[in-house]
Amino acid sequence: MKKEDCFYLGKIVKKYSFKGELLIKLDTDQPDLYENLDAMFLDINHTLIPFFVESSQLHKSDLLRVQFEDVETEADADALVKTEVYLPLDLLPKLEGNKFYFHEVIGFTMQDKHYGTVGKIVAINDSTAQSLFEVENNGKDILIPMNDEFIVKVDRDNKTIIVDTPEGLIDLYLE
């Protein structure tokens, strides 16, 4: 399994018991969707290794308490703390309407109601306070805030996102 075929589920943050149980901090708004998994992929030395789940249950709000097969001691568990956890993309719940996963819209064409075709979405920058669409237009990068008020329609069939940006925003990048 390759990392590009998976999505980041969370990170093992600490041991839970002396029997090898671990706590995974989930990076999701719907932790209950991941309570009864059969397996997870752990990123060990930049290789995704499958680990089979013996038992799991939600612990507090966004922590998943997991017992993996063959992880039976504190030492086994210690070796996995701070490891990132991944799942195959096909386990992501399907989103509809104007909701989307960041990886899903890479390659979509962005169109603005007033400006017309802005360009192709080449990346999502989520390292800032507000996530940004990175759109390529004839060799120039345009950053469009990922704001619900700007997004008019996500058209999955035509691989297009229609936005309504404030007047002059796109022109700032092209002048």
Rank of each mutant, 00 (worst) to 15 (best):
N147W: 05
M110D: 03
G139P: 00
S131E: 01
Y115K: 11
I49M: 14
V53E: 15
T128L: 14
L64K: 07
V118Q: 11
L92T: 09
T160S: 03
G97P: 03
V105L: 03
D171Y: 00
Y34W: 11
T47F: 10
F68C: 07
H59C: 07
M40N: 02
K15G: 12
N36T: 04
E104Q: 15
Q30V: 01
K82F: 13
E149K: 14
K82C: 07
E149R: 11
K15H: 04
C6P: 07
Y86F: 15
T160N: 08
I44K: 09
E167D: 14
N158L: 03
Y173M: 12
P166F: 05
P88K: 03
D76M: 02
N36K: 12
F7E: 02
N98C: 00
K14T: 11
I124H: 07
S127A: 02
D38C: 00
T47N: 14
K60I: 06
G10E: 10
L132M: 09
K14S: 14
D32F: 08
I121A: 15
I49F: 15
L95E: 15
D90F: 07
P93E: 13
A129G: 01
V154R: 05
V13Y: 07
E136F: 06
S56E: 03
L42K: 00
E134H: 03
E167P: 01
